[in-house]
Amino acid sequence: MKLLGLFNYWVFAVLLMIGLYALISKKNLVKKIMALAIFQSAVFLFFITMSRVDGGTAPIIQAGVPDQIFSNPLPQVLILTAIVVGISTTALGLAIVVRLYEEYGTVEDDEILAMDRES
């Protein structure tokens, strides 16, 4: 039961490692960007899970409802910002991949490396 209770954290750890592994092992630059996105999403999941309170709702005060339980809104706000950062990073990364393709004619890391060594 304890294991299941921590389900989200397991997913966080697994996603994080999938992302990191792919970042290191994949040679294709687009796959690297995808891995980066997975890696960052894992962290988003981590923050959102942390903010959840059992039975909690959105933090909006309703008239006539006593003892409302809220989920903590702060991590969610942080993650909104972090998602924007993540999107910008992905966009910039892809833009660089496009420029790389224009210059080198390939998006494979090892081929680019080989061409760099020659020049």
Partner: peptide, 13 residues
């Protein structure tokens, strides 16, 4: 470009 791609990946990690 290839240098900055590497920097982007490592910097983001």
């Amino acid at each position: 470009l290839s240098a900055v791609f590497k920097y982007l990946i490592i910097g983001t990690i």
